[in-house]
């Protein structure tokens, strides 16, 4: 109980700031800005979901965007109205072409399917360490992408599925991100999270203290799969149309840059990273289309967004490997500042 309260207190600051910013945008900004804000909160959910595994276990995962894809596809297939479904995927297997669920049960089923998939893949992934393990996560990404593309009867293949009832809006995304921030911080500071983080610092020492690394990795993998799955639900229920390319390398790059820039070992770091990358790629996207700046027509430069993301990753890795915040959460920063102030005050009075 104590831990629950402490987590609530510690996650209050970022959640409050994000909620105020989101509410202001929701009521006062233009429609396209609301869309950008929605994308930000959705990516925040995915990035924090990835942080739960990557940040605590220290294992880089390239496969998480697949969880997003799986839950988005399940929601789509279960909620698209029957008439539309008939024209898009008439031969859907398991009789899925004949059923339509309401949005709530569809979301619950989607998350359950995602968790089941995460659990099965996690059983394999927890056993392999090091670079081979990271390549295994890459295999997850490729396999899911190939299946999304090739299972045309179910997913309509490379052509997009459309007609998903639009049930989500900015407040829902804000709510989801608040919940995800809380869960991620709760896990990070829990006994399991602490042990897992210890194992990422020094595996042998942690093991000899009785930390069951493989079990904890599986736990973190499934939990983060669940959180990323929420991101997938947010994606499908807002856009109303999804295709396999949304859940492949481009999205992986984006989320990876967000997680790395702020510091993958802290939830607060991921929030900062997501905010910076969102702003940065929005600027890059504007420049890409060749805007007119101070009466000067800039050339169009497609690929600038990707270039920006790649450059952020490389520079971050070479210059500031632990990210902007490193190991610190917001509350650590506040506490450290108070401690320095107190120390200064002490020296002045002395």
């Amino acid at each position: 109980m104590n831990h629950l309260l402490r987590t609530a207190a510690n996650s209050a600051l970022p959640i409050l700031v994000l909620t105020i910013a989101g509410t202001l945008i929701y009521f006062f900004a233009e429609a396209y800005q609301v869309r950008i804000a929605y994308t930000f909160f959705m990516n925040l959910v995915v990035a924090i979901g990835l942080q739960v595994f990557m940040g605590n276990s220290g294992v880089v995962s390239f496969g998480h965007v697949s969880f997003m894809g799986i839950s988005a596809y399940v929601v789509a297939i279960l909620t698209i109205p029957l008439a539309l479904k008939k024209s898009q995927i008439p031969d859907a297997p398991f009789g899925l072409g004949l059923v339509q669920f309401d949005i709530v049960s569809a979301i619950l089923i989607a998350l359950a399917v995602t968790v089941a998939f995460a659990w099965v893949s996690g059983l394999l992934i927890k056993r392999v360490s090091g670079a081979a393990g990271e390549i295994l996560t890459l295999a997850v990404l490729v396999i899911c992408y190939v299946v999304f593309n090739a299972w045309i009867d179910l997913t309509r293949g490379p052509r997009s599925l459309y007609g998903i009832p639009i049930a989500s809006s900015l407040p829902w995304a804000m709510l989801a991100s608040a919940v995800v921030i809380f869960i991620a911080k709760y896990f990070r500071d829990s006994e399991d999270g602490l042990q897992l983080r210890a194992s990422s610092e020094n595996m042998l020492a942690a093991r000899s203290m009785g930390v069951r690394v493989e079990r904890l990795r599986l736990k973190a993998w499934v939990l983060s799969g669940f959180l990323v799955g929420i991101g997938g639900v947010l994606h499908a229920t807002y856009l109303g149309t999804i295709g396999p390319n949304s859940y492949y390398f481009t999205q992986t790059f984006l989320i990876m840059a967000m997680v790395i820039l702020g510091g993958m070992r802290s939830v607060s770091g991921v929030i900062v990273g997501t905010a910076l990358i969102s702003i940065g790629s929005e600027i890059a996207r504007t420049l890409e289309n060749g805007p007119v700046v101070l009466g000067l027509k800039l050339p169009t430069m497609f690929g600038l967004t990707g270039f920006f993301l790649g450059a952020v990753i490389v520079l971050c890795m070479t210059l500031r490997r632990d990210g902007i915040l490193g190991d610190d959460e917001f509350e650590d920063i506040v506490r450290n500042r108070r401690a320095t102030k107190a120390a200064e005050a002490a020296t002045q009075t002395a």
């Binding site: 790059f253 690929g303 270039f307 490389v314 890795m317 070479t318």
Partner: peptide
Amino acid sequence: LTAFGVSIVVQN
């Protein structure tokens, strides 16, 4: 991750 970044930069 660095190599990943280099690859994106060169592609773009």
